[in-house]
Design a binder for these strands. Structure first.
Lengths: 137, 137
DNA sequence: CAGCATCCGTTCCGATACTG
DNA sequence: CAGTATCGGAACGGATGCTG
């Protein structure tokens, strides 16, 4: 049986087709994870190359240490990111995308770019919807 | 001045370049919005065509009325979705993607498909990371 | 059918203080 | 430099009951 377009991947652990619309499908947890507040920014940032902890902090304005660490640990667990520690003093820790992480970065970067490209259309839509709400009063 | 690849869109309201890495850039709120728990599923579901409220509930397993309504209102405000009410009894409400919504659906669907395609690799990575954590004990 | 209103537990997340 | 630990408020989100 070969792959044909439109055919679902089978989840090996369950033998069921991968389907984010199913509440219990593990793809759902992955999607939830990806749509965390900082995940997209971290993955996208690492696409440009290796970054250290502080470098990520600087690149991603507004992220706290706690959230950055938490996000990186999650990405590591899912196999998207590697963490390399150089036991020097002071310590040096580098983060990189794995091959899996780089493949995830593609759709993620597309999403970031889409947002940056269409921001003015969205803001115009928002302005319309708030003015409509006001005149309904 | 014409568009060249790699050039940022200018946010009309502020005159600053669109940049999700900037904490105060409006693109950041949009990205936060898109990465809500249900947004991706709703947009992706509507790509297949018009759906009614109950149809969306059925399609997206596990979503509550509250969250579905909230998500749809947000998508409407951002100009991604239209809501059409037919004042019949019982009422009939149809949801559709706008043109802007359909353009957003592209990267979103790519993300869903990526998740469904790579789920087994991710689960293997997770299994590895939990076994490593265990043997560190 | 397509919601809205309310309650309420859970999770998120930022701020702060501290460490090898 | 690269984190860990803890606290408290805010937001998320599910369950339930009600409505035109």
């Amino acid at each position: 049986m070969r792959y044909s377009p439109g055919m679902k991947t089978m989840v090996e652990a369950s033998g069921l087709p991968a389907d984010v619309y199913s509440a219990k499908c593990p793809t759902r947890q992955v999607l939830d994870h990806i749509s965390g507040k900082w995940t997209i920014l971290v993955v996208d940032a690492l696409l440009e190359g290796t970054l250290r902890y502080t470098g990520l902090m600087r690149r991603i304005e507004g992220v706290s240490q706690k959230m950055l660490t938490q996000t990186l640990r999650g990405l590591e667990a899912d196999g998207f990111v590697t963490r390399t520690v150089y036991p020097t003093i002071p310590p040096r820790v580098e983060y990189d995308l794995t091959e899996l992480g780089r493949s995830l970065a593609e759709p993620i970067t597309a999403l970031r770019q889409w947002t940056e490209t269409h921001i003015n259309e969205i803001e115009r839509a928002r302005a319309r919807s708030t003015s409509e709400a006001a005149e309904a009063t």
